[in-house]
Amino acid sequence: MTRRQFADLLAWAAAQLDAKPTQPIYAGLLIDAGDDTVTIGAASHGGGARATLPADVMEPGRIVVPGRMAAQVVGAYRSELIELATAQEQVELAAGRDLFRLSLLPAGDYPAVADQPDPDGTVDGSELAEAVRQAVSATDPKVNDLQVWRSGIQLTAGGDRLTVWATDRYRMAERTIAWTPARDQEPVGALVVGRSLVDAVLGLEGAISLSLAGKTVGIGDRVRYSTLDRLDEAGRQDPHRFIPAQFTTEAVAPAADLISTVKRACLVAGDGKPKILLGFGSDDISVRAAGDDTGAVAMDYVDGRHIDGPSLQIAFQPGPLLDALTVAGTDEVRIGLTGPTKPALVHAVGDDTDYQHLVMPVRL
């Protein structure tokens, strides 16, 4: 097998291991060599992953290696051809003149990696990856066990669309993409850990199969497949109820210019509870910030387009505002407002995306 193929799949599988495994075996990756393929398996408390690629196998076998260390070692090799051999409870990784020996973990103790069930439908891999990247910006991975939904991304398939959205209670990011159902079915969906889903979709190509109706969520292409445990939705309120039927004030702004202007204003916003004040009402969108602890003030303007509505000023925390703008993925964004204390809606302006991000303001 080539080093690049092996390194990519090892890195992909290692990224899905538990960050702090409770047992040593959960820090390992399973390498299963068959007649003409090699399968790499990863097991975690939140799911599992499996990848299979063609290989010239001289002697079939099954070993478990330290996952992250093996991925780093193979990724650092210079030669494109890599050989694996085992001897005396160690695996020898050779590529050209590079040689590493790693201690093996007990293969008999390795948890089973789930098989891929029949999919509920398929989506385009690049579209799904972008939608997940956008949705994860509205998650909070540092949550307690009573609000795990704040770290999750919701996948809901219905008709010919897959909706990908997330909320941490203070914001909501959403995108829909084309969905090809495998059969006639009622809408089906699942909530999964956002960061785990980001790792799972990394590197997937072509038509991606999704299984949403089972006890676990399955996602994969012809080479890679992952399973993700469902999250508990208890306590989550639907943020879509905060999206108004119409807006009082709307404007369009160049995304890159607005992002850079907000970042410059952040330099004086302070470290306590920084705020960015945006002013709408003309084609010039004002961006202001003041440092409560330093007395410094910043004010700048972004050349936008005022669509409709009276003048309005609204304040945001810089982080959530920048997250909403940065992941839009378009040259322009449309911002809809109903009042200085009501959530603002950031839309991506483009023919091939319906990304939207609801951002809660802060009081002045």
Rank of each mutant, 00 (worst) to 15 (best):
V217N: 03
D168E: 15
Y77D: 05
D271H: 08
L337E: 10
A255G: 01
D98I: 01
K20Q: 13
R171W: 14
R161I: 12
V91Y: 07
M1H: 07
G272Y: 11
A43L: 07
G336D: 14
D109F: 06
P117K: 03
L312M: 14
A207P: 01
V123I: 11
Q356W: 09
V302N: 04
S282T: 15
L258D: 01
T37C: 04
V73N: 06
L322Q: 06
V302P: 00
P239V: 13
R4K: 08
T338H: 02
D271P: 00
S44I: 08
D35L: 07
D32N: 08
R334W: 11
T341D: 14
V113P: 01
R363W: 12
Q16D: 09
S260Q: 10
D232I: 11
D168V: 11
G194D: 08
V359R: 00
A255Q: 07
P21A: 08
A27M: 00
L197P: 01
G339A: 09
D118H: 09
A114D: 15
P111S: 08
E59A: 12
A70H: 10
A14E: 13
A207C: 02
R150G: 06
Q356S: 12
T248W: 08
R3W: 03
T22S: 13
P340H: 10
A269Y: 00
P24M: 09
S126L: 12
E80T: 13
P187S: 05
A131H: 10
T294C: 05
N144V: 08
R305W: 12
D8P: 00
R195H: 14
G291S: 05
G295D: 07
D140H: 05
R236V: 09
A131W: 14
V132L: 07
G47M: 09
W165C: 09
